[in-house]
Design a protein around this nucleic acid. Structure first.
Lengths: 224, 224
DNA sequence: TGACTTTTTCATGATTTTTTCATCTAGGAC
DNA sequence: GTCCTAGATGAAAAAATCATGAAAAAGTCA
């Protein structure tokens, strides 16, 4: 199985310092898709609706250690999301508290941007194992979930079977016969354009179109 | 249904300072299986014959940056091994060099033993979460309690088993077979729509509906 | 035992998916 | 330009699947 790992990640930055926030966004946007939130509340909302690969979290949001509270939520919602805490207080005790709250890393402010990027990459590498990233699509093999642009997509049975069949070999063009053999008990029973319609229904559920039509041959899942 | 997280890792420590080496071994041995090597050569031999979960690597083995050389070898041999580099030189440039060589973390000497342990734990924590916060729901896996909007919800045994099974992987769609296998001694004994009814009874007890029906496939716990 | 709760079964109506089919559209060949 | 073809699309029919209420069966506990 050929799998294409496109290392563009979706990252959430929760940081109340506006200047720092936009600086980080600018710096990382060249490599990844960045969302930002200025408060924990805003951050939690985003975590509920998008799938992130990493979270960069300011520990000292609005005084107390509010920031830490989001970590367990995030980790269970999104098992493949790495968490980096940033904080001005870099003592050993604080680092330990951060890590035991569930974070994967702890960076002291001020930090070097290149180091931040390296640490992000290191974490992402570690988490990327059971996930196929294809452009804006994230296919979690283990949990059999698909998310596109961070949104979790629920497919019906036929849609699911067809989509994951195409995903088994990204970029390969499958004929309608290939597909019918894969997703039907009795492939000969279907005489109409059923497969075209299933394809269409999948497309209707996605915000982008990752399925390429190859005229005269069939369909392929492509990198979007 | 009880879930136990007993995560004992096999860790290799490569460190030429004998005193530090045995100190580390003593400190970590309570939690993990520890192998030690005093030289790079010795370390490479061990890497060739055992599967490690983590490598603690002294950067400054025998003068030059010999330590780094082992990382690509290791990563090739054991793709799921995390690497933590330790070094007396803690400047940003060195940290970046270490991380870009493939390490997952970088610790400056001298480091606090508790912090080292925390960082090691962070590497495996993704397998051992105990509290799930999902929107208005709080699911405590360890104590097996569920509360919604602050209120503790009491579920009957079957309801409880089914709910916590779904909660073990939020967003994953479980088939009725998956569920039956998880919550029944003899899954084949049930011929009717028992599971549907249990689902319905759970829904009746909750003020919100966190269970998504995916027609033709099964059920999934979703974020509410 | 008897009152009570939980679990399972079943029949029915509601809903969604799946399939079919007729019609549209875009692009290539002529 | 027209003709032709493969695919896209919308809508309706057919099939599959699920939710629900109610009742029987099994289990719990004083």
């Amino acid at each position: 199985m050929e799998i294409h790992y496109n290392m563009c990640m979706r990252i959430l930055i929760i940081e109340d310092d506006l200047k720092l926030r936009s600086m980080l966004k600018d710096a990382l946007e060249a490599f990844h898709t960045i969302d930002t939130a200025g408060s924990l509340k805003e951050g939690i909302e985003l975590v509920g609706s998008y799938a992130y690969n990493a979270l960069l979290l300011d520990r000292n949001l609005s005084g107390a250690d509010e920031g830490m509270k989001i970590i367990p939520t995030l980790k269970k919602l999104q098992s493949s999301c790495a968490v980096i805490i940033t904080s001005a207080y870099g003592g050993v005790e604080e680092r330990i508290a951060g890590l035991s709250a569930g974070a994967d890393d702890y960076l002291e402010k001020p930090y070097d941007l290149r180091e931040l990027k390296m640490r992000l990459d290191a974490l992402i590498r570690r988490y990327a194992r059971d996930t196929i990233m294809m452009g804006e699509m994230q296919i979690d093999i283990k949990n059999e979930t698909l998310s596109v642009q961070g949104e979790i997509i629920l497919l019906s049975k036929k849609e699911h079977d067809l989509f994951f069949f195409l995903a088994s070999k990204p970029d390969k063009v499958f004929t309608r016969d290939d597909i019918a053999n894969a997703i039907y008990e009795d492939p000969s029973s279907t005489t109409s354009n059923t497969i075209d319609v299933v394809i269409r229904n999948i497309r209707k559920k996605l915000p982008i179109d990752p399925i390429e039509t190859v005229k005269g041959r069939g369909y392929a899942l492509k990198n979007v």
